[in-house]
Amino acid sequence: MTSPLFCSTELAARIERAEVDLISAVSRASVARSGVAGFVTPLAGGAASFAGADSPYTKVVGLGFDGIPELDAVEEAYAAHGAPVSVELAHLADPDLAALLSDRGYRLEGFENVLGLDLSRPSDAVAPDGIEVRTSGDDEFEEWLAVVVDASVHPDTQGVPWHDDFPATAIEQAQRDSAAAGLTRYAAFRKGELAGGAEFRIVDGIAQLAGAGTAPAHRRHGVQSAMLAARLADARAAGCDIAVIVTQPGSKSQQNAQRRGFDLLYTRATLVRQP
């Protein structure tokens, strides 16, 4: 029996640095597109990002692994936009930071799970019959985007719902920004129809599996599993040593990932301070 992947604080710090890199890159692309007076501010090993009031990339990430941050200036920067400060904090981060945030009036509003797969282990992941997955080019971007946005605004109801509930327009713009930031897109086809889309990014040997969505009419037919298998194969081919996926607790996405051998590494708490 294979032992579960153990997540040390060092591994968690590495994954959180990759998350900082991802959010920073996409946030900068968002600001360049929209012209919003946004910012990406380094903060004690993490980053504070503002890409617009309705952007999924407006948040603070990666804290708790490189000292305790000075928060006054960051809180003032968000307040200048009339925006709350939303901090995603890994439970393996410095516990003194959680206490500090509580003392400053931050309120716990949600959780998300970070799962990882040791890519040195042999894989038996294969795409289910009848589903084709390939990388998706610019020529079909609008069609790909429509499927992913539709999947996002009609989320699977299994498990704990996402803390954030973004409108379709915000999700669409966020996907355009992730494309501009260079994330690789994948498209899944079932019975000749574009049934799902997903994203993929590599940083520091970590394969970040992001943005996966299946059109409601094609759910429960293995589309997610097929997109996962394709991205894992590419991650191994690229020499990555670990793949990471973020899900909601108890969700179908978490169930699919664990069936494919992913282990639950740690949980991020979302703590919010209103302006």
Rank of each mutant, 00 (worst) to 15 (best):
E143H: 13
W144H: 11
A146Y: 05
V147W: 12
V147N: 14
V148I: 11
V149R: 10
V149F: 05
D150H: 13
D150K: 07
A151T: 02
S152V: 00
V153I: 15
V153E: 06
H154M: 08
P155L: 05
Q158Y: 10
Q158N: 09
G159M: 00
G159Q: 00
G159W: 02
G159R: 03
G159Y: 04
V160W: 00
V160E: 15
V160N: 07
D165N: 12
D165C: 05
D165M: 01
F166Y: 15
P167S: 08
P167A: 06
P167K: 08
A168G: 05
A168M: 07
A170G: 11
A170Q: 06
E172F: 01
Q173A: 13
R176G: 01
D177K: 08
S178K: 11
S178G: 00
A179R: 15
A180G: 01
A181F: 04
G182C: 06
L183G: 01
L183A: 07
R185L: 14
R185C: 04
F189D: 13
R190V: 15
K191W: 08
K191R: 15
G192Y: 10
G192Q: 10
E193W: 02
E193L: 06
L194C: 12
G197K: 05
A198M: 10
A198D: 12
E199N: 09
E199C: 03
E199P: 00
E199S: 13
F200Q: 12
R201T: 09
I202D: 09
I202L: 14
D204G: 08
D204H: 04
D204I: 10
G205K: 05
G205I: 02
I206E: 07
A207D: 06
A207N: 03
Q208R: 12
L209V: 13
A210G: 05
A212S: 12
G213F: 04
P216E: 02
A217K: 04
A217S: 13
R219C: 06
R220Y: 07
R220L: 04
H221K: 09
H221S: 12
Q224C: 02
Q224F: 11
Q224E: 08
S225L: 12
A226K: 01
M227C: 02
M227S: 06
L228H: 02
L228A: 00
L228Y: 09
L228S: 01
A229L: 04
A229C: 06
R231N: 01
R231S: 03
A233K: 08
D234P: 01
D234L: 02
D234T: 03
A235K: 05
R236K: 08
A237Y: 01
G239W: 01
